[in-house]
Design a protein around this nucleic acid. Structure first.
Lengths: 113, 113
DNA sequence: AAGATCGTCAACCGAAAGGTTGAATATGCC
DNA sequence: GGCATATTCAACCTTTCGGTTGACGATCTT
């Protein structure tokens, strides 16, 4: 198809809900990567990684371009921006207990590396 | 438990991945609501809504307080903020094709009301 | 006390998620 | 051509998800 359907918030948030996929996105922040290289640090099969990448691509969080036998994966920030925009539709949150928030982040973020 | 576990990004994004739950959050933006009133506009059973609310509460996107026989649901923006913070860890996205982005929003947002 | 209302629980269901393995399909290299 | 590499496909399995229904425990009302 020439004009593919826009990614849904369903697809975007669902894609982001999996820790493996979030880790993949973080890896792609560094550089574009081939599927095999994406798979390398994980303990799951290459086929499973391939599926994860398909889900990320479906949500348009990444794009995939095949050059030769290698399929390159590239971060596509637009979909993530769409997610934040939706969330920010919830308005200016009240200015808030930043200490508690920092503690929350300190506890949460190491989980992802 | 006195200090419940912090919500995981897994739970937050998974909670946001469902359109019914996003609609509920949007409703709660207006005002705190009782479970029955949350359920009213939807075509699914009260039990199903109750489960959705439990998932939102587990992710700490809402809190629930029982007063009398009524359980009040209240938006809790911290978890959403955590989600945006994670996403924004992806850095300053390149300034971008706003036309395309506007078109994307026009196509996507009506779905949620 | 009786009856209505609010909400959850428990058991069940079909579909989707996330994983596996083995075969298949391209492509690159000698 | 023949072999190795890169990736996906197909079939399968188990667990989770989103829904249903009916019974139940609380709580208000009369």
């Amino acid at each position: 198809m020439f004009t593919p359907a826009p990614p849904s918030l369903d697809a975007i948030f669902a894609a982001l809900a999996d820790p493996t996929r979030r880790a993949i996105l973080t890896m792609l922040l560094e550089d574009d990567m081939a599927v095999t290289d994406v798979a390398e640090p994980f303990d799951i099969s290459l086929a499973a990684i391939s599926k994860h990448l398909a889900i990320l691509a479906e949500a348009r969080l990444i794009s995939q371009e095949k050059r030769g036998r290698v399929k390159w994966c590239k971060l596509e920030p637009d979909a993530m921006r769409a997610a934040t925009i939706w969330i920010q539709g919830f308005g200016q949150f009240d200015p808030l207990d930043f200490d508690a928030f920092e503690r929350f982040l300190a506890a949460e973020l190491p989980e992802e590396g």
